[in-house]
Amino acid sequence: MDFGSILSAALSSALGPQAIVFALAAIGLNIHFGYTGLLNFGQAGFMAVGAYGLAVTVVTYDQSFWLGVVVALVAPVVLALVLGVPTLRLRADYLAIATIATAEILRLVFGAVETREVFGGSNGLTGFAKTFQDLNPYSGPLDLGIIRFRPDDLWSLTVGWILVALGCLFVWLLMRSPWGRVLRSIREDEDAVRSLGKNVFAYKMQALILGGVFGGLAGLFFAVKQASVVPSDYSTNITFYAYTALLIGGAARVLGPVVGAMIFWFLMAGIGAFFSQATAGSDPLIPTWAMSDIQASLVRLILVGLGLMLLMIYRPQGIFGDRKELAIDAR
């Protein structure tokens, strides 16, 4: 058992692009769910329109990368409007079903054979990230001893973490303002807010758009970082994992999604590496009849499910949260 390499895998994931993607997506969910109480189960859809917004603009329509970025940020706004106008009046659980269904529709349509000309079918689209890669100022890798990042990863990380930091700053500024107070009040009881003369629908819409744009940003970053978009990357599980990350860090806290995403990926990668080592080789630590190497890759996902349940039951305020400032209706 090589604990050094396990730690290395865990740390590079916690600081790596995966954590950034999930931090951005979870910042969006935090605005939706943590602050406003909107149960958006379709964050994968927002991520998908962000990623495909860029890819389709550049690859299918042969436009510039920067126009693609603009499209990637406008597309979630459009999706939020289309989705929000009718659904924001619905009960929380209906909104959840409507958003999850929308995300699935998007994924199926993006992956369909019939729309292959535009979206590239199940193989997706590639070849749109060159402009981004060309901007890379790094020539050598970053070697921190235990972890090491290649130049292109380093460039993604630099841009990604700056985006996350700016996002957190923006959310912090907004949430300390009276605007943020209205959102938190809507989460508590929207009829009360309505009775005080606030246009609840408009605030929910603003929150849905803002959180959706963060989702789109996550998808955009994801697409640029791996230089391809594939429909299966935007499955519902992504949304659920982002919720898990958010709940680990604590909903309705500015840094909750970021800390949560880092811990989530530290654990995912660490546990993954541990079990992969434990089942590898001719004389594995865990005998093959108990766990094959394929099964080993599933252990962490089993633990995600279990972890999400336990978090929600025992620590709905997040690992670091104070029970008093519990943001979720867990009583």
């Binding site: 907004l174 303002s177 009276p178 605007w179 943020g180 209205v182 005080l196 003369g197 606030k198």
Partner: peptide, 19 residues
Amino acid sequence: MRLGATGQRGERFWSAPFR
């Protein structure tokens, strides 16, 4: 109590970030 006040500038999205 503060929530009850009407016509708050800080409740508008674009002015909210600027204290």
